[in-house]
Design a protein around this nucleic acid. Structure first.
Length: 728
RNA sequence: GGACCCGUGGCUCAGUUGGUUAGAGCGCCUCGUUUACAUCGAGGAGGUCAUAGGUUCGAGUCCUAUCGGGUCCACCA
């Protein structure tokens, strides 16, 4: 044995050994208890970041359950990450002086496909470098044909059940990224903008968006506002920049009499509230801002200007005409921005597909309250319910090429008074329009929100394992012919960062119950965010990012893994620093050297007699039993940090610093009882440590037991109250 | 406007149903290297547990308020 543990010499060899010997492969074994986790699928085109190394919690659970003797499935996957990936790819194109508009849809899709597939193995290799005991034979990609098929079927079922509908309401649209979003992707930013009090016919009213006035189709006041009562129902004439125009005065509860002058212009095409008012009063929609972020022809001479420039010009011209009463320069309000590029989002009228959320969310809330799904830490249960309670209908259409195209076709021939007839299938192009039998059908150009497919990930991945030809997609029924699915679904644990609770976890619960009538998982275990050593968020711009693979190269996977747990509580944010990883590297070396010392001295002297009466040995055995008991209790309760802490402290500061020092001479003189106790206590500690530090424990194990042996064949031996030792 | 988290030695954090002299890692100080490990060992300094009340025989731990830091949500033009 080397005097130091050198991870780079053993890690890859050991991982390959595990894979080749099938230690990570799961199969249906009804004599064993199943334990299953679906890995949150990392973005296929991106490198792993430190946040994703937190999935080490899953590896800990997985290996722990293997050592308990359970049948374990940890299923890997990759996410096509629609909009995210397209965004990255566009940056990529920009560097070459190109843009996505230089290519047609199919070409662009093919290019992104190649880009992603080329990068996908990166992410996979990085998961392997971390030692994750994933069953690679079951890996899925969100764009695998069988997964796509399941996504289509889910969509069709939702549609058939009336839970998907098409609506022309306003969507938060990013004119730079060229797509609309769901509520969750909108980032609200506080901003100080001028509030313009402008002369508007007989009124003065306040607005931050004078450039949208060309789309005004009413003026609204609160019905209880006495000041303006007499005007309600009348039409007023307004002197505008492009001539006089007439609008109705309407009364609506949405108007706050205390805001501004209590009068508001109503622009149904560009403001969420105004849109609702417009619906209530049957107002016309005039779109002033186009999808390119420029004003439309309606704006007359201002057409073609971008929003910001248009606003400045409009204000300037209004000032000249004396239409600005005064300006409040210190008005603070919140503005919706794009989470990706920070551009101010425009509410624009685009037809999109929506999921009717209430029935799905209510079911999820009911089941969570009935404790069908548990949360750790407990506080996230409350958060999940709060989220599910506040969800609005979910816009699942994205104006993005990279993704699963929505299986909806509309008929070109029968345009019923502007309302399109849609035919939804589970993927195949329909033969003809159901209304007019026309064969002129055109597919929706939009793709699904990535989260729509990820929401189905647990059941989609497991259903697909039986092969696309014979999977059964039955609602509210047992998938009785799919053993694999029935054995591992519901999965045992969903472990992920708390930051995607609403985006992903809540939606998986909704979809899992809706499609399978069972929870997708029994327990939600949420980990915290990785921060730098000062507790600040890691970001490229701050330059405080730690690349996990660099750390693995330098200190070994075990060190990195343990540094993610050490001194942190499950679910809390964790401060990371290279110093911390160094500390854990030192521990892996300590583990190695304890083994080395025992190994070097394991030559029993036949002339020395057994001395089981040795009091230090008795003490050691007693302390070890206590350690192990506490360890198992903590592991069972998902208190992994505590379990690691226990072994760290025992092995280093008790076993090595105290007991070995005390027994050193006895060991060297070849006392077999001392050797055996030290050996067995040490080996049991290796097993306990294995979920945390799989490589060094396996490496030492092989030195002790032989190259072909694996610590993964070990089982926790538990002594019950009557003193019998058996597998747990 | 609503919700959540945090405030413990220089730094980053543990402290699970309230109970002996409040812990760890790193940092710092002193000492130690003939044969497992200097990626080591022995020893040490250092904390009014944010503040003020309250419950209790007893509170870092429960309750209330205040201050300070962070996060998330929210269609007031």
């Amino acid at each position: 044995m080397e005097p130091k543990f050198i991870p780079s010499q053993v890690e890859e060899k050991i991982y390959k050994f595990w894979e080749e010997k099938g230690y990570f492969k799961a199969k249906v074994d009804k004599n064993k208890k199943p334990f299953s986790i679906i890995l949150p699928p990392p973005n296929a085109n991106a490198d792993l970041h430190l946040g994703q190394t937190m999935y080490v919690y899953e590896d800990i659970m997985v290996r722990y359950h293997k050592l308990l003797g359970d049948e374990v499935l940890w299923l890997p996957g990759a996410d096509h990450a629609g909009f995210e990936t397209q965004y990255v790819f566009e940056k990529h194109l920009q560097k070459q002086g190109k843009s996505r508009f230089d290519y047609d849809r199919d070409t662009l899709y093919k290019m992104i496909w190649d880009f992603v597939i080329n990068n996908k193995s990166n992410m996979e290799n990085q998961l392997k470098r971390l030692g994750f005991a994933l069953d690679w034979s079951k890996e899925k990609f969100t764009l695998d044909p069988d997964i796509v098929k399941i996504v289509y079927k889910t969509f069709k079922k939702l549609y058939d059940d009336g839970l998907v509908y098409r609506s022309e309401r306003l969507v938060n649209y990013c004119t730079k990224c060229g797509t609309g979003f769901s509520d969750l992707e909108v980032v609200h930013v506080e901003r100080t903008d001028p509030l313009y009090y402008m002369k508007y016919g007989s009124f003065i009213l306040a607005t931050v968006r004078p450039e949208t006035k060309f789309g005004d189709t009413a003026v609204a006041v609160n019905p209880k506002d006495k000041r303006y009562k007499k005007w309600v129902g009348q039409e007023i004439e307004v002197e505008g920049l492009i001539g006089k125009f007439r609008v109705k005065v309407i009364a609506d509860e949405a108007i706050d009499p205390k805001f501004g002058t209590g009068v508001a212009k109503v622009t149904p095409a560009h403001d969420m509230t105004d849109f609702e008012i417009g619906k209530r009063h049957d107002l016309e929609m005039k779109q002033v801002i186009g999808f390119d972020g420029k004003l439309t022809a309606i704006a007359g001479p201002y057409a073609g200007l971008r929003v910001k420039a248009a606003r400045e010009k409009v204000v300037e011209d209004m000032k000249k005409k004396g239409l600005i009463d005064h300006i409040d320069e210190n008005y603070t309000h919140t503005v919706s921005t794009c989470y990706k590029c920070n551009t101010t989002l425009e509410p624009l009228p685009i037809p999109q597909w929506y999921v009717r959320i209430r029935p799905l969310a209510d079911r999820a809330i009911k089941e969570i309250k009935a404790k069908k799904i548990y949360f750790l830490p407990k506080r996230f249960k409350k958060m999940a319910i709060q989220w599910l309670t506040n969800f609005h209908d979910w816009n699942i259409s994205r104006q993005v090429v990279w993704g699963i195209r929505i299986p909806a076709w509309h008929c070109i021939d029968c345009d019923h008074g502007g309302i399109q007839e849609w035919v939804i299938t589970d993927g195949d192009k329909p033969e003809k329009c159901t209304k007019c039998q026309s064969t002129h059908l055109e597919q929706d150009i939009d793709t699904f929100d990535t989260w729509f497919s990820s929401a189905q990930w647990p059941y989609a991945t497991l259903l697909s394992q039986s092969g696309i030809s014979n999977f059964k997609f039955q609602i509210s029924k047992e998938n009785s012919e799919n053993d694999f699915f029935n054995y591992f679904y519901p999965t045992s644990v969903m472990e992920t960062g708390y930051d995607i609770l609403p985006w992903w976890v809540a939606r998986m619960i909704m979809m899992g119950y809706y499609v399978i009538d069972k929870p997708p998982f029994r327990l939600v275990f949420l980990h915290g965010l990785v921060r730098d050593k000062k507790g600040q968020k890691m970001s490229k711009s701050k330059g405080n990012v730690i690349n996990p693979i660099d750390m693995v190269d330098k200190y070994g996977a075990d060190a990195l893994r343990m540094s993610l747990l050490f001194g942190a509580k499950e679910g809390n944010d964790i401060s990371m620093s290279e110093e911390k990883i160094v500390g854990m590297r030192n521990f892996t070396n300590k583990i190695w050297n304890i083994g080395r010392f025992i190994h070097l001295n394991q030559i029993p002297n036949p002339n020395v007699k057994f001395q089981m009466s040795n009091t230090i040995l008795k003490e050691l055995k007693k302390e070890f039993e206590e350690e192990k008991k506490a360890y198992l209790k903590n592991m069972k309760n998902y208190q992994f940090t505590k379990a690691l802490d226990l072994v760290y402290d025992f092995l280093w500061h008790r076993f090595a610093d105290y007991y070995i020092e005390q027994l050193k001479d006895d060991l060297r003189t070849g006392k077999i009882d001392v050797l055996e106790v030290l050996r067995s206590v040490y080996k049991e500690n290796l097993i306990m440590l294995h979920p945390f530090a799989p490589f060094v424990t396996e490496a030492v194990w092989k030195v002790f037991e032989g190259e072909e042996k694996s610590i993964l064949d070990s089982r926790f031996m538990i002594q019950d109250s009557r003193g019998f030792i058996h597998e747990s």
